[in-house]
């Protein structure tokens, strides 16, 4: 009975702020989120970054808001985006995010965003570690064609890109394995590429070690991080709405621990 009551409380606390869209204070960006934002701000205009969509539908609610805000941020900074996936469940999600954000950006800014010139999606390749190692040698041995079957080396965006070393920044929307840790082990350290990631709340504390060693320049942790990042980018989307719900949810957990100790002694 107590368990069901707790579940009901969680549902109420999570749904109310999202439904009524009320705010419980100004969101303060954490140092790791600021690091993520600054890494994107630092890239010279016109350069090309690699973005890897490594998540599945289960982790979509946590990572999607950051993915959307990041693509928006990159387009606004006039940075070209080459996207790919190491998870077989990611392509449909990636295409949906990339398609809708580019369209929305065109609509709001009036700027024309062209596939193949401003962004491209290479799709999914099986092999996890070996794909990353292969990308370090040559992008074209791993991706002869993009997601839509077009020849990768004929895309204008790929003109000056041969391998991972040609990207000044790598961004991973990673929910687990293969994910940020895999990229660090197999590529970013080896090729000295700046690396940032967006991840789920479950693994966020584990990746903190890479922040302190400088292997990760920044990290956006789940919905809360997404809210912080959206504030920095200056947009108001799912992340900001989620921060309030999550904050109240976490407050509820502290209350539940205290109650658990008082009532069940």
């Amino acid at each position: 009975m107590t368990r069901r009551f707790i579940f009901l409380l969680v549902a109420i606390v999570m749904i109310l702020p999202m439904y009524f869209q009320f705010s419980i204070g100004k969101v303060h960006a954490s140092p790791s989120t600021k690091g993520y934002y600054n890494a994107i701000e630092k890239i010279p205009e016109g350069s090309t970054v690699l973005v890897s969509f490594d998540f599945d539908p289960g982790s979509k609610p946590e990572i999607e808001p950051t993915a959307r805000a990041t693509i928006w941020h990159l387009l606004r900074r006039n940075v070209k985006i080459v996207c790919m996936s190491l998870w077989e469940t990611a392509p449909v999600l990636a295409v949906e995010i990339l398609g809708s954000v580019t369209k929305q950006f065109e609509k709001q800014t009036g700027k024309k965003i062209e596939y193949g010139k401003d962004w491209c999606y290479l799709g999914f390749r099986p092999g996890k570690y070996s794909v990353i190692v292969g990308l370090g040698e040559s992008i074209y041995t791993q991706y002869r064609t993009d997601f839509y079957g077009k020849k990768t080396d004929e895309l204008p965006i790929m003109k000056d890109i041969k391998s991972l070393k040609d990207f000044p920044l790598l961004i991973d929307f990673g929910a687990g394995n293969p994910g940020p840790e895999t990229w660090i082990q197999m590529a970013t350290d080896k090729f000295k590429i700046d690396f940032i990631c967006a991840t789920t709340a479950v693994v966020e504390p584990t990746y903190q070690q890479y922040i302190s060693t400088g292997q990760l320049k920044g990290m956006v942790g789940a919905m809360r991080g997404a809210g912080e990042y959206e504030q920095l980018v200056g947009i108001n989307d799912k992340g900001t709405a989620g921060v309030n719900a999550i904050s109240l949810g976490q407050l509820l957990i502290v209350v539940l621990i205290i109650l658990g100790n008082i009532l069940k002694k």
Partner: peptide, 8 residues
């Protein structure tokens, strides 16, 4: 936990 809640 509390350190990440905006109003706290």
């Amino acid at each position: 936990i509390l350190g990440r809640i905006p109003f706290v």
